[in-house]
């Protein structure tokens, strides 16, 4: 497989995962705000933090109202982190790799892109936002399902997995981080059971509510939620589980006998854990892990994309 093609497949998967993540994030955040009184002090800005485009937003806007934030995150093509921008990159990357993916993927991505550009206005107002974002998430799952069901487990498939799980692990970390920030907004007064609301929305963003309950068998709380989303080995959106999948795929790609480069040290840090009850330590832990994921991307690129 050509290095250039491997790199594009990898990015195709990352951007597709990003589209889905953004839809989930906005979906759950909207629901959460409906449960909180208007003066709860929780602002839409946390969503900007979770999306990872904080600097870009602050450079351009001072007001952080719902409409501005949602537009910025959904349809703003000048924001490279917006859903539309990610979707554009999905298309750009598949355009140059059509020859290694199932043919229907190309068609589905095209349909998807037209659907979003024609309907994205529905996502701006709360009235139709839910239905629109649900459809977006569904389409991402459809594309992933198609590839899971029809693709040979060849090198291209494993590069897809590398991209998808790296992006997913990153998203889980960012969602956790946003949750921790949000709690900071409440610290003054917790009569609203804000902790409940925040942590349940973090788990819901990642579709982890039920798995959390059945696995941890405790009442909802931040420490256990964080531990679950970092350390659980079986839940597909936990960071640990994502890393394990990357390990598996890395071993099947020629050129790196020890598996996925740069992965071991991250695994070790997660296994070691942190004092989950200490908010400051936790935030630092998230930060370190995010940097490690960035480093891993560098190793992957070095090993497979920029060789020769």
């Amino acid at each position: 497989m050509l290095s250039r093609v491997a790199e594009r497949i990898y990015w195709f998967a990352r951007y597709l995962e990003r589209v889905e993540s953004m839809a989930r994030l906005i979906q759950v955040y909207t629901k959460m705000l409906s449960d909180l009184p208007r003066d709860s002090g929780i602002s839409w800005h946390n969503l900007v933090i979770a999306s990872g485009s904080r600097a870009e937003f602050e450079r351009r806007f001072t007001v952080q109202d719902e409409k501005r934030v949602v537009r910025f995150l959904l349809e703003d093509l000048s924001n490279p982190g917006s859903m539309m921008s990610s979707l554009r990159m999905v298309k750009e990357n598949i355009r140059t790799t059509r020859d290694v993916l199932p043919p229907e993927t190309w068609e589905m991505v095209n349909e998807f892109r037209y659907f979003v550009s024609e309907n994205v206005h529905l996502g701006i107002n709360r009235r139709n936002r839910h239905a629109f974002l649900d459809e977006v998430i569904g389409k991402c799952q459809q594309i992933n399902g198609l590839m899971a069901d029809t693709m040979r487990r060849d090198t291209a498939y494993h590069f897809l997995r590398l991209g998808r799980y790296l992006e997913r692990a990153d998203m889980t970390l960012r969602t956790l981080e946003a949750g921790a920030w949000m709690l900071g907004d409440f610290i003054e007064d917790d009569s609203l059971h804000a902790g409940d609301v925040v942590w349940s929305s973090v788990l819901r963003t990642l579709d982890a509510m039920m798995p959390f309950r059945r696995t941890m068998r405790v009442a909802l709380n931040g420490e256990d939620a964080a531990q679950f989303l970092l350390e659980d080995t079986l839940f597909p959106r936990s960071v640990m589980c994502c890393l394990n999948q990357m390990m598996e795929s890395g071993q099947k790609i020629p050129g790196s006998p020890e598996g996925c480069p740069g992965l071991d040290s991250v695994l070790a840090k997660i296994e070691k854990g942190v004092d989950y009850s200490d908010p400051a330590a936790l935030l630092k832990h998230f930060d370190v892990l995010q940097r490690d994921l960035g480093h891993m991307h560098g190793c992957i690129a070095e090993t497979w994309f920029h060789a020769h």
Partner: peptide, 16 residues
């Protein structure tokens, strides 16, 4: 891109 896919051959650029 279409033909490379239909033929199952590698789509390359000069730099490859």
């Amino acid at each position: 891109a279409f033909l490379a896919q239909q033929l199952g051959i590698e789509l390359v650029e000069g730099s490859d």
